[in-house]
Design a protein around this nucleic acid. Structure first.
Lengths: 121, 121
DNA sequence: TAAGTGTATTAAGTTACTTAATACACTTAT
DNA sequence: ATAAGTGTATTAAGTAACTTAATACACTTA
């Protein structure tokens, strides 16, 4: 479900939180769905439970999930926020692509990046 | 000339290299201009000379500057600087596209932006 | 009651970054 | 020639964030 990329410079908890967020946004974990328990996900990823706990804390702080002692962690509905972020990010990307064009970066270069990032991962 | 932002999560050498790069691109340091010496900039920023040395090494690796023992460090020609800037912008775009993917933005949306910006004319 | 849940604490280990103190070979100015 | 200034390299030590490890607690569920 999640694979850890050890070439990634970011801390594990951040990387795991990001991938979980992506899974939630892609619908693998719909709103109110129960996430894997801290201990089970730690075992699955061969990582310390504290690391998962921190990843979940970050996700909770960002509004993606909510956790209840004794019950588990659950996906919260964040669709409105996400739509806003999408629009903002899209504008940002367009600005950077404008800079790329003026610097003479070829479209093929950017297509190559799209191939990488939209590969599955 | 340069101020250090201690809320920035990146390492000092990277932050300093970035700001120097921007100064070069904005023309504050024209091609072939002599940069501050490792020791003087270290003193000015209250930072260890090794940290400046590493920042300069990064800039040299990226083609922004060239260094000569006994003489100093100098801004490279415009072409080299632009190459460095291209590399940096490409990295930035890749980061944003990563975010786009995790937000569920479809590839087609980004292709549409590319169509707009790379339209001939 | 037993097992599973999130959360908290303390300790130890790891890694990258940073500082510090030197040293070297070289260039420039005196 | 001498002194000062240059980039670069090395070794050591310190710092901070991250990670692992071992427990413990309060709670919920089967």
């Amino acid at each position: 479900m999640i694979t850890i990329d050890y070439t990634d410079r970011r801390p594990l908890y951040e990387q795991i939180a990001d991938k979980l967020a992506k899974l939630m946004l892609s619908g693998v974990f719909p709103p109110n769905e129960k996430l894997p328990s801290v201990r089970s996900l730690a075992t699955e990823l061969s990582v310390n439970p504290n690391t998962i706990s921190r990843a979940y804390s970050e996700l909770e702080r960002e509004g993606y999930i909510y956790s209840v002692v004794g019950r588990g962690s659950f996906v919260s509905g964040t669709d409105a926020i996400i739509d806003g972020e999408k629009a903002k990010l899209t504008e940002q990307i367009q600005e950077e692509i404008k800079k790329a064009v003026s610097l003479g970066i070829l479209r093929e270069e950017l297509e190559k990046i799209l191939d990488e990032e939209y590969k599955e991962g």
